[in-house]
Simulated scan of single mutants.
Amino acid sequence: MSQHAAIPLLTPLLPDREALAPYLAKLDQNRHYSNFGPLNNALEARLAGMFEEHGAYPLHVTTTSSATLGLELALSSLDLPAGSKVIVPALTFVASLTAIIRAGYIPVIADIDAQSWLLTPEIATEAAIQTGARAVLAVAAFGQPQDTRHWSDFQRKSGIHVVIDAAGAFGSQWVEAPDIPVVYSMHATKSLAAGEGGLVVSGNSVINAHIRQLSNFGINLDSNAGFPVGHLSFVGSNAKLSEYHAAVAHASLDQWDAQARLRQDIYRAYRQALEDACGDLLQWQAGITLAAPTIFCLRMAAEARDRLETICRQRQIATRRWYQPLLHQHAAKVAPIIKQPTPVAEAVASGLIGLPFSPFLTGEDIARVTKAASLATASLTLTHQA
Rank of each mutant, 00 (worst) to 15 (best):
T189D: 08
I160E: 07
P58T: 06
L199D: 01
G70R: 08
L352N: 02
G203H: 00
E196L: 04
F217K: 12
V201D: 01
A95M: 11
I87H: 00
L78E: 11
E122M: 12
Q340I: 01
G70P: 05
L232F: 11
T383F: 10
A45F: 04
H150M: 11
P81M: 08
L327V: 05
I353H: 03
Q130K: 14
V344Q: 02
K85R: 08
Q340Y: 06
D265K: 09
T11E: 10
R315M: 10
I180C: 04
P359M: 06
P58M: 11
Q264A: 10
S205Y: 00
Y267Q: 03
S223L: 13
H187F: 14
A225D: 13
L262V: 05
A269F: 01
G197F: 03
A127F: 02
A335M: 09
N208R: 04
S158H: 10
V235W: 08
V348K: 05
V94W: 09
I311V: 10
C278G: 08
T362E: 09
R46W: 07
P22N: 07
L281G: 12
L281T: 11
G195V: 02
V162K: 00
S374P: 10
P12N: 06
T362Y: 06
T120Y: 08
S233H: 14
V108G: 02
T98H: 04
R261G: 09
M186G: 05
A269D: 02
Q285F: 11
V235G: 03
I129Q: 13
G49M: 12
I311N: 04
A127Y: 07
I288S: 15
P58V: 09
L91K: 08
L39A: 11
A249E: 01
I219V: 13
T68Q: 13
G55F: 11
D365F: 01
N216D: 11
T64K: 11
L47Y: 00
Y270W: 15
M50V: 03
T64F: 05
W151E: 00
L59P: 00
S152L: 08
A273F: 11
A246Q: 02
S223V: 11
P325W: 15
M50F: 07
A138K: 00
I100A: 10
V108A: 02
T63V: 07
E364P: 04
R315N: 12
G49H: 14
R320K: 14
G104Y: 08
T92L: 05
R212V: 03
T319D: 01
P58N: 09
S191Q: 09
A188Y: 15
L91W: 02
S77P: 13
A376H: 01
P38E: 08
L137K: 07
G236Q: 15
V248M: 12
L327W: 03
T342I: 05
N30W: 14
T98W: 01
L241T: 04
V163Y: 00
W117E: 03
S223H: 05
P8V: 09
H32W: 10
P81C: 12
E122N: 10
S66H: 05
V175F: 00
A292W: 00
S358T: 14
V344A: 06
Q115M: 08
